[in-house]
Amino acid sequence: MIARIYTNLKRDVSDPQGLAVKNALETLSFKGINKVHVGKYFVIELDSMKKSEAEKLMKAICEKLLSNPVIEDYTFTIENGNVSKKK
């Protein structure tokens, strides 16, 4: 079982990294870029469990450690399977 978690700065928090990336894209002449948000992406391999349990666990993990609720929002997805097969 795999959880994929994304954390991002809240919309009203300034995102200097996102701005720098946007400026770089404009410098490279890419058109149509309105805003860039730079966040973090975590992949967590889980023991097998019910999907509802996994969701509860991910919510707890996100709120306790992976995101700072003062500045960040989080989302996650949970899927069956492995990231890489053991040799």
């Binding site: 700065l9 928090v13 300034s14 200097p16 990294q17 700072n68 003062v70 500045i71």
Partner: peptide, 17 residues
């Protein structure tokens, strides 16, 4: 202290990076 919730607010990346 901010992360621990002992002080309000948060410290993010400098504007200039």
């Amino acid at each position: 202290l901010c992360e621990a919730g002992l002080l309000p607010g948060a410290l993010i990346r400098n504007r200039s990076l």
